[in-house]
Design a protein around this nucleic acid. Structure first.
Lengths: 219, 219
DNA sequence: CCCTCCGTTCCGCCTGGCGGAATGCCGGCC
DNA sequence: GGCCGGCATTCCGCCAGGCGGAACGGAGGG
């Protein structure tokens, strides 16, 4: 059984992968450099990506990611079925604690930030919606790993605190968001700088998060 | 000069296009039906899409859109360089008027909602971030069309009101968001049901929007 | 127990996709 | 003003990548 894949498709997708926060627009030559693909190949592949809106090309030849990615990306987020439930809850958490609030889901061995509301005070982690992080150290990683199995939760704390586990200057507090049937939907997290997230603030967050998670819950 | 494209890539992208609000998960047979592609072809193409995270496949064989779309989609949104400027302004508008606030950008002959904050009162248009709409009737379409050219703005009203132009039951009020150099960045919009958006509410929105747009403005 | 539909694999076929070379253009430098 | 370097684009011969019909096995429903 040979491994089925389509090389041309993967080449096209590798063009999209070349873009990043520091590489939002690229020339043909730059793309060739980043992907290792010959320019004629990039021109052909990108013509199809452009036609489907996954890339755009400016008048001067510069390539950028296209609007179909945003449309499909938000459609992906909607597959989680959270509707409009999450953002108001995140906002209320920010209002009550003054720290940033996020909602993460697990994807394989990563976690993805689907929603984030920033603290007006700043000073938090430079993280935005769309970013993916490893399931390594951190409160929300712990939640997404530990609460994954409905039948293996005996004795688990409902709230997890991490003090500089992943990012030395930050404290994060997280709790699971569960469906009516007990399935884990995601992790609700509050985070802020250590100086602000003292033990009192941590206790406050730990008190607020479970009921906030319950407000997000849906069948 | 024959038109350069890569058919395999377009076939793969047509698989992604098959998904929609009403089609968030599909079986192989269903995908074959939707795309017209033979199942062996879909299996090969989807193997590559899955490998790059654009699709996922559940244990029971069901296909869903994958996390790379969310990551690339939010990266696309970040290419507009709005940073964290928009959402707090939308939220303040919602708080002050009780109606939903949105930020649109233009893409070719469409407009795209990049940010949206919903009114807690509900009753507005069923529209979410990610949705694209034609540049047809409507206040924000008018703004995105009329304010496009920096050198053709003499005498333009800074605020546009549309009463049921696009959606009979809704009123929308929009204003342009301009960069320091006068380039049009997007359209800032408030909208709500006609019953709530009477002339007083419209005048209130018309007063608030330009200064809100100025707060979003960046160099 | 049988039938239908689904998912998967196989394999011969052929054209889709490739990339090096050539060309034209543009901007920068002398 | 001319030259040079680098970029983008086009061409075209080559070949292997991609295709899809057929067959098979499994599962679920009647």
């Amino acid at each position: 059984m040979r491994e089925e894949r389509v090389e041309s498709v993967e080449r096209a997708l590798s063009i999209l992968e070349a873009f990043g926060s520091e590489r939002r627009a690229m020339s043909l030559a730059r793309l060739a450099e980043e992907t290792g693909l010959p320019k004629p190949t990039i021109l052909r592949l990108s013509a199809s990506l452009i036609r489907f809106g996954h890339l755009r090309r400016d008048g001067d030849g510069t390539f950028r990611l296209g609007p179909s990615l945003w449309r499909l990306g938000t459609l992906y987020r909607r597959t989680f079925g959270m509707g409009d439930a999450v953002r108001p809850v995140l906002r209320a958490l920010v209002a009550e604690t003054g720290e940033s609030a996020s909602y993460y889901v697990r994807e394989g061995d990563e976690r993805i930030c689907l929603y984030r509301e920033l603290s007006p005070r700043g000073g938090g982690q430079r993280l935005d919606e769309g970013q993916r992080l490893t399931l390594g150290p951190g409160a929300s990683s712990w939640v997404l790993l530990s609460w994954a199995e409905p039948h293996a939760r005996h004795g688990l704390d409902r709230v997890r605190v991490s003090r500089g586990e992943r990012n030395p200057g930050l404290v994060a507090v997280a709790t699971p968001v569960l469906a009516e049937d007990g399935r884990l939907l995601g992790a609700l997290t509050l985070s802020g700088p250590r100086e602000r997230m003292d033990e009192t603030a941590q206790a406050r967050a730990a008190a607020l998060l479970p009921e906030a998670a319950a407000r997000i819950r849906m069948g």
